Amino acid sequence: MNTAMSSSSSSLSPEVLSPAAMRDNSEELFRKLLMGVSVMAGLTHLCFLLLFYKSGVTPLAMINVGSILCYVLTFSLLWHNHVVQAWMLIIFEVVGHAVLAVYFIGWESGFHFYIMLVPPVMVVSPLDNWRAKAPLVLGLVALYVGLDFFLRLATPVAVLDPSVINGLHYFNLITVLVLLIFLAGMYYRLVVQSEQELREMATTDPLTRLRNRRSVLDTSSFEAAKQRRDGRPMSFVLCDVDHFKAVNDTHGHEAGDDVLTSVARVLRTGVREVDHAARWGGEEFLLLLPETNVSGATLVANRLREAIEELRVSSKDGPLRVTMTFGVSALHPDESIDQAIARADKALYTGKHEGRNRVVMAAEDHAR
């Protein structure tokens, strides 16, 4: 039927995510990654604080106090979505702490390993383009090589017991490896989670939280293939809110949105788990009912029609009464999905002209 598609105040969910949505999701992924880094780094520096305090290296103990406070601030910045500032603070702390530690207690302590963590994270960072990233990455590489050249054989300011230096070396080596594994694992988990969220965004109507048009068509193709292979029935129910334009015009678009979300809730809870309810467009909805013949689909449609007729949607002007008209068709073996839905649409159109608030079976199915 597809009438009054634009009468709803809420647009259909986009079938393809915009570049802005992808970028926002990528930045949120990076923010969560840095929050995990902040917690891990803060705990690591707490261990260093205790170690240097007991070893009598007071300057480094105080530096680690500052590092802990730095990561507390970093976590706070990330919590309030100041990702760029937090990332710059992390880079400053990691590099500064590594340089000072190597200067005070020597190259063999292994604190320079932490600088190697920054370039990979910088590469996956979505915050800037490569023209901004490349100088920072190259600068960190140059800094590391410079530290190796000038400080690897230099005499440290504070000479610690060789056993302590050896312990620090392997502690730092193992910690960096663990952090790399943690970062890779966390990034992988967040990428998977992000993909799931993007998939949901791409297949779900944002207002009603039902499937969108593209998603239900993809599922219909899959179910149709099963139907043709196994010889099982499959039906479509196309339904439309009656006099929806009058709701928007009289009570406002907010009331219209409330009507759509209330109707969607009835449709979603009124079908089986194997069935699929989708927002087809505007105030139209489509139900895909696998393994259901046209008679069974008609019974489902009548049950839903009665449930919606009993529905009362609150509004500023008082409770709103809602009714819907339903068109039902079964997918025939010799027709496409579009043809079956078109027959349900024609039945819906007939129901509208016969007075609305009714269920009409497609003529071809009725004849059978």
Rank of each mutant, 00 (worst) to 15 (best):
A101P: 06
Y103R: 08
S109H: 07
F113S: 11
V84Y: 13
L117F: 13
I90K: 07
F111A: 06
V118K: 00
M116F: 15
W107Y: 09
L89C: 08
F92S: 13
M88K: 12
F92H: 13
H97E: 05
W87C: 05
G96S: 09
V95G: 06
A98I: 05
F113R: 10
I91F: 08
H80M: 11
I105L: 06
Y114M: 11
H82W: 12
V118T: 08
V94Y: 03
H82S: 13
A98M: 05
I105A: 01
L100R: 05
I105E: 01
F113C: 11
F92A: 15
V102D: 01
S109D: 05
I90T: 09
I90A: 06
M116P: 07
I91P: 03
L100I: 14
H80Q: 15
Q85R: 15
M88G: 10
A98C: 12
Y103G: 03
F111I: 05
A98T: 04
E108Y: 10
E93C: 15
A98N: 03
L89M: 15
F92V: 15
N81A: 14
L117R: 08
L89E: 04
M116D: 10
L117G: 14
W107T: 04
A101D: 06
I115A: 07
H82A: 11
G96W: 05
W107V: 04
I91A: 09
G96Q: 03
V84L: 14
I115E: 06
N81K: 14
H80S: 12
Y103K: 09
M88T: 08
A98D: 01
Y103W: 13
F92W: 13
I90E: 01
L117Y: 12
F92I: 15
F113M: 14
H80C: 11
I115F: 03
H80T: 11
Q85P: 06
M116A: 14
H80Y: 13
S109K: 02
